[in-house]
Design a protein around this nucleic acid. Structure first.
Lengths: 147, 147
DNA sequence: TATTGTTATACTCTATAACTATA
DNA sequence: TATAGTTATAGAGTATAACAATA
């Protein structure tokens, strides 16, 4: 529990971090049932999306881009590897690194699961005016990008 | 670690939940040094803000409004009570409940700490165009309020 | 019967330190 | 010397279940 069960005026008492926390929690909770049929969670899908967009990367780069500690990436990529979604290959250009790359199954799973969570995000943003839906993403990007 | 240390284009690979997570983490990390001189963390300040705005409430209501599990509220209010920031009083109208209310010290601490984190939030929003700073809060409120 | 506060417990996520292999 | 991956470990935060007191 602990999931913003009250409605209406209560948001007036939340600071910016509280609003961000509440929004993130609601969205992640909404991802869950949408991703369950695919047997992945939100973090695993984020890895699939990353690898789909930019191709094979080291574990460190996954860590940096997704904001997940490199020690956590080990177990995460282990699990996804066991599920047959990705491969760990030694990087021939720097043998300290693993190159993490999608398997065909991983690529296929992303192709099927991504539309499901696009729908979840659309539903999440539905209460906003049409022109504000992209605006929210844009503002968040601007604020995160500038550190 | 695991704190979005990469810059620039990497945000293109993040979903909405990833952006929210990144924004929240950056902001909470920025609160920390600003609140350290006052010997409170972000959650404790959120409780102080809540009690300042709406007055004495039960532990359950703190739980609902801040999205913190009621079992976690016990330790949180214990700590804040030990710091002299709030009091636990039996609610005369419903003796199952505790009424949590600010002490003068708690009220004073909020008055001194709130401006410090208002500054942190202003700095956090500084990269946005002036008219977009309130817009971000507004969009988040709309999305969280509607569940 | 249901709710509030409480305790105990477990699980996840995160964080730190230390090791190895490579550079 | 520094970096990448790994392991062990500890600490938050969260969640579930059960209980006592009260409604």
């Amino acid at each position: 529990m602990g999931a913003f069960t009250e409605t209406g005026d209560h948001l007036a008492t939340l600071r910016l971090a509280g609003l961000l926390k509440g929004a993130q929690r609601l969205l992640v909770d909404a991802y869950e049932p949408a991703l369950a049929p695919f047997n992945v969670d939100g973090r695993e899908l984020a890895v699939l999306t990353l690898l789909t967009v930019i191709g094979a990367v080291s574990q460190q780069e996954i860590s940096r881009r997704l904001g997940i500690d490199r020690t956590t990436i080990v177990a995460l990529t282990d699990t996804m590897s066991e599920k047959g979604l990705l491969l760990r290959l030694p990087d021939p250009r720097d043998r300290r690194k693993n190159l993490i790359e999608l398997t065909p199954a991983g690529r296929d799973l992303h192709a099927r699961a991504a539309p499901a969570i696009d729908e979840v995000e659309a539903a999440f943003l539905a209460p906003l005016a049409a022109e504000d839906r992209d605006k929210l993403r844009e503002l968040l990007r601007a604020v995160v990008a500038s550190r």
